[in-house]
Amino acid sequence: MQSFYPSQIIEYLYCPRYTYFEYVLRIPQYEEKFYKVTRGREVHNEKLERNKDYLRKKIGVVDKWIDQYLGMDGLRGKVDEVLKLEDGNFAPLDYKFAVWKDKIYDTYKQQLYCYAVLIEENFKVKVANGYLVYTRSKNKLVTVSIPSKAKKEIRTSMEEMLEIIEQNKFPKATKFKKRCVNCTYRNICIK
């Protein structure tokens, strides 16, 4: 079975045509050119090597798995940290090379939702919350609720993406036309 990364699910949720252009027509995005993506990966690597015990104590961590690669049918990815908390719950923690602006972007939430699905499948536990660390705001820690509905949307997206790929299906574009302005496929997409 085809297996997707959280970034691919996020792209699909942004506009289903990403899946078609990148995985049916095999037209790459060349996202490496974007500074923030590249720098974000560097910061990820730096942060994973540093000891963040003070953040973990703040949220009651009793056990942790750092830089944890998890997989299941339809989804795979590397979670910065899988946390086991004092209350027995598990949670993903993700470092962001970003400034906290009193708003959690949908893409950040969706990534945590993907990680929650992976943790639930691999650890056989329920995940109700996730954590974001904003590295450009003095490692600000933000709690994100992970509702069951969001985890279901991730699983449904995986199925719909597979259908696009297996059936060479050209999906409808996003209904949010402002998203098309910065899309890497805007020059070849039929609106």
Rank of each mutant, 00 (worst) to 15 (best):
S137P: 05
I119S: 09
L83H: 05
K126S: 12
Q111G: 01
V142D: 08
L83R: 07
L132F: 01
K149E: 09
V82S: 07
P147F: 01
S157H: 08
D94F: 04
L162M: 15
I154N: 04
C114Q: 08
E120M: 06
Y105Q: 02
K96P: 12
E163N: 15
Y134T: 04
G88V: 14
E163C: 10
E121A: 14
A150Y: 00
V125Y: 07
E86V: 09
Y134K: 12
P92W: 07
D80C: 03
T143D: 13
E159M: 14
A91N: 13
E160L: 15
E120A: 07
K138S: 14
V82Q: 06
C114F: 00
Y108S: 10
V117Q: 00
A91D: 05
T135Y: 00
Y113V: 00
L132V: 03
T156D: 15
N89Y: 13
E163K: 15
V127Y: 03
Y131T: 02
F97N: 10
L83N: 06
K84S: 07
S157F: 03
L83I: 14
G130H: 09
A116R: 05
I146D: 01
E153C: 06
A128H: 05
S148W: 10
L162Q: 13
K140I: 06
K151D: 07
A91R: 10
W100M: 00
S157C: 10
E153G: 08
F123P: 02
E160W: 11
P92N: 15
R136C: 01
Y115M: 04
I104F: 04
S148Q: 12
V127T: 05
F123D: 09
S157D: 09
A91E: 06
A98Q: 15
D87V: 08
K103Y: 07
Y113C: 00
E81Q: 14
V142L: 12
D87S: 12
T156S: 13
R155A: 13
K151A: 11
L85R: 09
D80P: 01
G130D: 02
Y131A: 02
F90K: 02
A128R: 04
A91I: 09
Y105W: 02
K109M: 02
V99A: 15
L118P: 01
T135H: 05
K96S: 10
M158Y: 05
P147C: 11
L141E: 03
K149T: 02
E159N: 13
C114Y: 00
F90T: 00
V125W: 05
K152M: 12
E81T: 08
E121L: 01
L141K: 07
E81G: 02
L141N: 06
L93F: 04
S145D: 14
E163H: 14
M158T: 10
M161D: 12
Y105S: 05
